[in-house]
Design a protein around this nucleic acid. Structure first.
Length: 990
RNA sequence: GCCUAGGUGGUGGAACUGGUAGACACGCAGGACUUAAAAUCCUGUUCCUGUUAAAGGAGUGCGGGUUCGAUUCCCGCCCUAGGUACCA
């Protein structure tokens, strides 16, 4: 019987599903291992070959870990709230739940075809009420919590209330809004309920506040900073404007430092850690106050270089700074207003792009230097950002390049502050020298000056050490329908949680999925949707990242109705051991998930500080488009002749283009014999000879009265051609005619009888006809081939274009595996004889290799090693059970269907190969007496020495000299030096 | 600009801590089997010089360096991809 991937794969996929082969339970006998994929948003387009790349890798890893005796949790689900289903609903009126359900079913079918070992009994869907009940519940916990900096963790809001009741607001060290009140215990108790709630809201981790948001009118919603790319929405590319709105926010900044420190404890790709680090953006420095006596206030600045304070020659405020108008003198008023007006008209994009022009305006006012008391000019300029630090900086032109440029431009003083500075051309921020012109720190080093200054400023009550973060609190509301409702109602404009037993707060039905006439979110359309028929519910829904910020917990205990996951489940499965997904989630999902994980830990629901111990980013699979080149834009003498359906092979096209590029001609002419440079058909172009003749044959056969054709650089138009009718870049011309019926009578100018297509790497998209569907590959070659080939394509973490060219090689390999178990007639034929040494060697090489490769996620090299191994066994005509059985266990993670079939043919119980024991590597089989390795002599010549010399360095000298081969080679020369590496002779110096 | 990763045949890529560069696969060329096709198998395939061959030379983006020996380590530069953007 031949290898029939179709029947084998269907048979085993059915078997696994019916027998629950991959159902996982908590087990005390085996160590646990949790392998997680980033769950997909089920889009209408279905999966293309790029999607399963990471899933295949994680499946290989899961299956490998099972063979290694681990109890593996490997689940899958759907991040099923999201915009596309809602957009579709707006257009068609179909409920997003229906669209989502349809798409999920399609995804499931496609995933099943690939033979993943998911435990589908643990599937989760974020849009399922039994799931989002717990998303809402977590929101409630966040609302009911504050961050105590004293204990460095989140606590129940009750502990804060107790503190307020006993000692008022003093001694509270909390993460909060900036405008918190100061009050005593008595004052607190005297507050009205409303006042108390208003105050508590400033401390809650989920809180409401007026904030400037990225409002996208086209999408009718608010976007997070990371959903806005270059001023337009990430999804759809619509313009985004700044708008003030009451918004739910998450106090993720409370966790900034823990999020940063945690990065050192996890095994993630360096670029990703770096991205999170930059995103959090911690800078250590000082906050310094510059008194402004005339207004009886201070200007607070943040600096990372408090040591340069004596170099301050002016202060710069952001144009939006609140003190600007008060500081502006009458004389400067016109100038300042003009400047503010000018910068406010600049879009965010312009302000970003234009970093060269120096601009700013003097307010006319002065502040006092906190230490010297001297007058310091106050300026405004748009290089200072209102959103970072305090929106004001102390300018030190000698130490900061931007300040330097600004000072030069406006002719402000530049004060050198260090004896090692060179400020002739530009600012010099070095910290190496001793200070000059710096009052009491003159002569000190950087290390001495900083603490001295901090304590001085603290003594003056004009400054203190401070740490600043770039990260902002995350906005947690969308004016959308298809998301989790926020379990909140409003009484006197203040938010209150609904009762826990009333969860889930179900998404109500609406007549349309659009905002209401009054501009409320779609939920405003829900009729009679009121808490206890009295109070308005919150009308915004949660953002896309809500449901994905805790889903790995739900897989641990997916059916639990009492909690999001039981303590037993979380303490058994702990954290995710291996997480595979794309790097595009670096500052979104991966950051929010870490935040919620830490929060839930603080409340005691589990014990893991970090959710994902090891993370791998799989690369993107790009599309590889194919092109054909159609003759167009040409001239004829009699203009009624048309040749719009002649299509030339790629290399002709390329030669043609190259010719134009090198010859710099505007036109060339096609005559009966080929291409000519001149209109009189005298100078024949030999480099395009064959092409010209082939093309002429077709053209002049169509119209013999024609004298010549005039062709220009753009005379051939590239057309996208469906990659599915192209194989190894050779076009199936018959299929092309049905692909483009408008070219049914097309004629092809072939090279060597073939039509070769041009190629280009582009994004995979329908319009470029370069989408490759895994189902098609599976139909032709099978799931095992797809799995192996996706791995074979290159390193997992690298982005690469999809290219089906090499898939034959992998398919051939699987057939060779099949043939090892079958004789020439196709009958199953495995012998019980004892294998030879060579056979054991081939086997043990692959056992070791695959083990090493999988542990370091180098799946592509394993596939090559499998090919070598099977070629060796084929050459040895090996059909020994002892070899083949171990071989298929090692291969099982990569190609589970064929191995499962062969496993059963060997007489093992059906469906048990996944839980077989990974064969033990025995190094003895790899040792061979004839093994030799190269050495060089005087670093140049090369020769092979027998393994007999592969000994401990001390013993070698004698043996070398006594070795016949070496003696013959060295021909009596005296050996001066022997160089050893790892006990082997590498070089002999004579 | 800054941060990170990378640059190896016609192509995808291999070489794991410095030790025969180009494994494996695709493609290509030639051959075997076959009436033929498919399938399968065998041989060759980095480039240059050389009539085949023997042999020699060059060679991992470019220029230097360390080393007996560098795709691998160091310095400078060029290019590509991803991230980030006046962060005080």
């Amino acid at each position: 019987m031949d290898y029939s991937h179709k029947s084998i794969e269907q048979k085993w996929q059915k078997f696994w599903a019916e027998n629950g082969t991959f159902k996982t339970a908590e087990s005390t006998e085996k160590p646990k291992y949790y392998v997680l994929d980033m769950f997909p948003y089920p889009s209408g387009a279905g999966l293309h070959v790029g999607h399963p790349l990471g899933y295949i890798a994680s499946d290989i890893f899961s299956r490998y870990k099972r063979l290694k005796g681990f109890n593996v949790l490997h689940p899958m689900g759907y991040d099923s709230f999201g915009l596309p289903a809602e957009q579709y609903a707006i257009q068609t009126g179909q409920h997003p739940a229906i669209t989502t359900e349809t798409n999920i079913n399609r995804y499931r079918e496609q995933l099943d075809n690939i033979g993943f070992s998911y435990d589908w009994s643990r599937e989760v869907r974020t849009s399922d009420p039994s799931y989002y009940k717990w998303t809402q519940w977590i929101f409630m916990q966040l609302f009911n919590a504050w961050y105590n900096k004293e204990t460095d963790k989140a606590e129940s809001i009750e502990t804060l209330i107790t503190k307020f009741e006993t000692a008022g607001s003093q001694n509270i060290n909390a993460e909060s809004d900036e405008d918190v009140l100061t009050f005593t215990a008595e004052e607190w108790k005297a507050f009205s309920e409303e006042e108390q709630q208003r105050e508590l809201l400033k401390y809650r981790l989920a809180y409401l506040r007026e904030s400037t948001v990225n409002w996208c009118a086209a999408l009718g919603t608010v976007l997070a900073n990371d959903e806005v790319i270059n001023g337009v929405s990430e999804r759809g590319g619509y313009p985004v404007e700044q708008k003030k709105m009451m918004q739910w926010s998450m106090r993720i900044t409370a966790y900034a430092d823990r999020l940063l420190r945690g990065l050192d404890t996890i095994d993630w790709p360096e670029p990703l850690i770096e991205m999170q680090r930059n995103w959090i953006g911690k800078s250590v420095g000082a906050s310094v106050k510059f008194p402004v006596p005339q207004l009886d206030t201070n200007i607070e600045v943040f600096t990372t270089r408090v040591d340069t304070i004596f170099g301050v020659s002016f202060i710069v405020l952001a144009p939006e700074h609140e003190l600007v108008s008060a500081l502006t003198t009458d004389a400067q008023k016109a100038e300042i207003e003009f400047y503010i007006d000018k910068t406010s008209k600049k879009s965010e994009l312009d302000r970003m792009a234009d970093t060269k022009t120096v601009s700013g305006a003097f307010t006319g006012s002065y502040a006092k230097h906190p230490i010297t008391g001297e007058d310091v000019q106050i300026w405004i300029a748009d290089y200072v950002l209102a959103g970072y630090g305090t929106g004001a900086v102390m300018a030190v032109p000698s130490g900061d390049q931007r300040d330097y440029v600004f000072a030069k431009h406006f002719n402000l003083p530049i004060i050198p502050i260090s004896d090692s500075q060179n400020i002739e051309e530009e600012a010099d921020p070095n910290k190496d020298g001793k200070y000059i012109n710096s009052g009491f720190i003159n002569g000190m080093t950087y290390q001495e000056a900083v603490p001295a200054l901090i304590s001085k400023l603290e003594g003056l009550k004009l400054g203190k050490a401070k740490i600043n973060f770039r990260m902002r609190d995350a906005i947690f509301g969308r004016q959308r329908y298809w998301g989790e409702p926020v379990p909140v109602y409003f009484k006197n404009d203040l938010p209150y949680l609904i009762k826990e037993e009333e969860l889930p707060l179900l998404l109500p039905e609406v007549d349309k999925y659009l905002p209401t006439e009054t501009g409320e979110p779609p939920l405003g359309r829900a009729e009679n949707w009121k808490y206890q028929d009295q109070y308005e519910y919150e009308l915004s829904t949660m953002p896309g990242w809500a449901g994905s910020s805790w889903y790995w917990f739900r897989y641990m205990d997916p059916k639990n109705a009492e909690s999001f996951a039981s303590k037993e489940a979380t303490s058994y499965w702990k954290a995710v051991d291996l997480y595979i997904g794309g790097s595009e989630h670096a500052t979104g999902h991966l950051l929010y998930s870490r935040f919620w994980n830490k929060f839930l830990k603080d409340l005691g629901f589990h014990n893991e500080e970090e959710p994902f111990k090891k993370l791998i980013n799989q690369g993107m699979i790009q599309g590889r488009s194919n092109f054909v080149y159609r003759l167009s834009n040409f001239g004829t003498i009699n203009s009624d002749v048309k040749f719009n359906n002649i299509i030339v092979s790629y290399n002709y096209y390329k030669a043609f283009i190259d010719y134009f590029n090198s010859s710099k001609l505007d036109e060339i002419y096609l005559g009966q014999d080929g291409f000519y440079e001149d209109i009189n058909q005298e100078i024949l172009i030999f480099s395009l000879d064959k092409f010209g003749k082939d093309l002429a044959n077709i053209v002049f056969a169509k119209d013999s009265s024609l004298e010549r054709l005039t062709l220009r650089y753009n005379s051939f138009t590239p057309l996208h051609v469906d990659v599915n009718i192209v194989s190894n870049d050779i076009l199936d011309t018959e299929k092309f005619k049905s692909f483009r019926p408008d070219f049914a009578d097309a004629e092809f100018v072939l090279e060597d009888g073939k039509y070769i297509c041009g190629t280009e790497v582009e994004k995979m998209s329908k319009s470029k006809f370069n989408v490759v569907n895994p189902d098609d590959i599976i139909a032709n070659f099978g799931a095992d081939t797809l799995r192996l080939y996706e791995m074979f394509l290159g390193p997992l973490e690298q982005s690469k274009p999809w290219n089906t060219n090499g898939i034959e090689g992998v398919y051939k390999f699987l057939r060779k595996v099949w043939r090892l178990f079958h004789d020439a007639e196709g009958n199953f034929n495995v012998s019980d004889e004892e294998p030879t040494k060579a056979e054991y060697k081939a086997l043990h090489k692959i056992i070791k290799k695959v083990e090493d490769d999988i542990e370091r996620f180098s799946f592509n090299t394993s596939v090559s090693a499998f090919m070598i191994c099977v070629n060796e066994l084929t050459d040895l005509k090996c059909n020994k059970r002892k070899i083949l059985q171990d071989l298929i266990i090692v291969l099982e993670p990569y190609a589970p269907h064929i191995t499962e079939e062969l496993w059963a043919l060997l007489g093992n119980e059906a469906g048990t190969i996944s839980y077989a024991v990974y064969p033990k590597f025995n190094p003895e089989y790899l040792v061979e007496s004839e093994f030799a390795y190269p050495v060089s002599v005087n670093g140049k010549m090369k020769m092979n020495l027998p393994l007999a010399l592969d000994l401990d360095a001390k013993a070698v000298e004698e043996i070398v000299l006594g070795n016949a081969d070496v003696q013959r080679y060295l021909d009596g020369k005296a050996v001066k030096k022997l160089i050893f590496v790892k006990g082997k002779i590498i070089n002999i110096v004579v």
